[in-house]
Simulated scan of single mutants.
Amino acid sequence: MLTNLPNPTLFLDTIHLQEAKASSEIENIITTNDDLYKSLVADKKFDNPATKEVINYK
């Protein structure tokens, strides 16, 4: 089913990002989905150090 999507890497990147966010929360690195997606769209300009950490963990 994944191959039927127009851009399957977008779907997989989203799953990896959510896993990185959940794993980072265990280490008390808290960020929001909005901050994560905004930083990805803005060419990785980070306003929050926790967001940077989660993106790097991904």
Rank of each mutant, 00 (worst) to 15 (best):
Leu2Cys: 07
Leu2Tyr: 10
Thr3His: 15
Thr3Val: 13
Asn4Val: 08
Asn4Glu: 13
Leu5Asn: 08
Leu5Phe: 12
Leu5His: 12
Pro6His: 08
Pro6Asn: 09
Asn7Leu: 13
Thr9Asn: 12
Thr9Asp: 13
Phe11Asn: 10
Phe11Thr: 14
Leu12Cys: 11
Leu12Phe: 08
Asp13Met: 09
Asp13Leu: 11
Asp13Cys: 08
Asp13Phe: 09
Ile15Cys: 13
Ile15Val: 15
His16Pro: 01
Leu17Arg: 07
Leu17Asp: 06
Leu17Ser: 05
Gln18Asp: 07
Glu19Arg: 14
Ala20Val: 01
Lys21Asn: 07
Lys21Thr: 02
Ala22Ile: 12
Ala22Gln: 13
Ala22Pro: 02
Ser23Asp: 10
Ser24Val: 01
Ser24Pro: 03
Ile26Gln: 12
Ile26Ala: 11
Ile26Pro: 00
Glu27Val: 03
Glu27Tyr: 02
Glu27Phe: 05
Glu27Asn: 08
Glu27Pro: 03
Glu27His: 08
Asn28Leu: 08
Asn28Phe: 07
Ile29Met: 00
Ile29His: 00
Ile30Leu: 08
Ile30Phe: 06
Thr31Ser: 05
Asn33Cys: 08
Asn33Leu: 14
Asn33His: 11
Asp34Leu: 11
Asp35Ser: 15
Asp35Tyr: 04
Asp35Val: 04
Leu36Phe: 01
Tyr37Ser: 05
Tyr37Trp: 15
Ser39Trp: 00
Leu40Asp: 02
Val41Asp: 09
Val41Phe: 12
Val41Cys: 07
Ala42Tyr: 03
Ala42Phe: 04
Lys44Ile: 03
Phe46Tyr: 15
Phe46Asp: 04
Phe46Ile: 05
Asp47Ile: 05
Asp47Phe: 05
Pro49Val: 04
Pro49Ala: 07
Pro49His: 06
Ala50Asn: 15
Thr51Asp: 05
Lys52Tyr: 02
Glu53Tyr: 01
Val54Gly: 01
Val54Pro: 02
Val54His: 02
Val54Leu: 00
Ile55Gly: 01
Ile55Pro: 01
Ile55Asn: 01
Asn56His: 11
Asn56Phe: 09
Asn56Arg: 13
Tyr57His: 14
Tyr57Gly: 01
